Amino acid sequence: MRSIVIGGGHSAYFVITTLREIDPKGKIIIIEFTSEKIEMLKKTFPYAEAIQQSVDRVEEYIAENRSLIDVLVSATDSDALNLRYAKHSIKNEIPMVIAVLNNPLNEPIFIKENIRCLINPYKMITSKVKEIVNKFSVNTVYEFSRINGGIYALKIEDTRILRKVQSFILKKNLPFFTISVDGKVRASSIKNIEIGDVVYVVCVDKNIRDLLEKIVEGGK
Results as ranks from 00 to 15, higher is better:
residue 67 S to L: 08
residue 67 S to A: 08
residue 67 S to V: 03
residue 68 L to A: 14
residue 68 L to W: 11
residue 68 L to Y: 13
residue 69 I to Q: 01
residue 69 I to T: 01
residue 71 V to D: 13
residue 72 L to W: 12
residue 73 V to Y: 04
residue 73 V to E: 06
residue 73 V to D: 06
residue 76 T to W: 08
residue 76 T to R: 08
residue 76 T to G: 08
residue 76 T to L: 02
residue 77 D to F: 09
residue 78 S to C: 09
residue 78 S to A: 10
residue 78 S to N: 13
residue 78 S to G: 02
residue 78 S to Q: 11
residue 78 S to H: 14
residue 79 D to F: 09
residue 81 L to Y: 15
residue 81 L to K: 14
residue 82 N to Y: 11
residue 82 N to Q: 13
residue 82 N to D: 04
residue 82 N to F: 07
residue 83 L to T: 07
residue 84 R to A: 10
residue 84 R to W: 10
residue 86 A to P: 03
residue 87 K to T: 13
residue 87 K to V: 14
residue 88 H to A: 13
residue 89 S to H: 01
residue 89 S to V: 00
residue 89 S to Q: 04
residue 90 I to T: 10
residue 91 K to N: 11
residue 91 K to W: 08
residue 91 K to T: 14
residue 92 N to Y: 12
residue 93 E to N: 14
residue 93 E to P: 04
residue 93 E to Q: 15
residue 94 I to H: 02
residue 94 I to P: 09
residue 96 M to A: 15
residue 96 M to L: 15
residue 96 M to S: 14
residue 97 V to L: 11
residue 97 V to I: 09
residue 99 A to P: 11
residue 99 A to L: 09
residue 101 L to Q: 12
residue 101 L to C: 03
residue 102 N to W: 00
residue 102 N to T: 06
residue 103 N to I: 09
residue 103 N to T: 07
residue 104 P to V: 00
residue 104 P to W: 12
residue 105 L to R: 15
residue 106 N to G: 09
residue 106 N to R: 02
residue 107 E to D: 05
residue 109 I to E: 01
residue 109 I to Y: 10
residue 109 I to N: 07
residue 110 F to P: 03
residue 111 I to Q: 12
residue 112 K to P: 01
residue 113 E to T: 00
residue 113 E to L: 08
residue 114 N to F: 04
residue 114 N to C: 01
residue 115 I to A: 07
residue 116 R to A: 03
residue 116 R to E: 11
residue 117 C to T: 12
residue 117 C to I: 14
residue 117 C to E: 10
residue 117 C to R: 12
residue 121 P to T: 02
residue 122 Y to A: 08
residue 123 K to Y: 02
residue 123 K to L: 10
residue 124 M to N: 11
residue 124 M to D: 09
residue 124 M to C: 01
residue 124 M to A: 14
residue 125 I to F: 09
residue 125 I to M: 01
residue 125 I to Y: 09
residue 126 T to E: 14
residue 127 S to W: 01
residue 127 S to M: 00
residue 128 K to R: 11
residue 129 V to L: 08
residue 130 K to T: 02
residue 130 K to C: 03
residue 131 E to L: 05
residue 131 E to T: 00
residue 132 I to L: 06
residue 133 V to T: 02
residue 133 V to E: 00
residue 133 V to I: 09
residue 134 N to M: 05
residue 134 N to F: 08
residue 136 F to R: 05
residue 136 F to D: 05
residue 137 S to G: 12
residue 138 V to C: 02
residue 138 V to P: 03
residue 138 V to A: 07
residue 139 N to P: 02
residue 139 N to S: 12
residue 139 N to G: 04
residue 140 T to R: 06
residue 140 T to K: 11
residue 141 V to E: 04
residue 143 E to I: 06
residue 143 E to T: 12
residue 144 F to M: 13
residue 144 F to E: 12
residue 145 S to T: 13
residue 145 S to W: 06
residue 145 S to G: 06
residue 145 S to V: 14
residue 145 S to K: 10
residue 146 R to V: 06
residue 147 I to S: 06
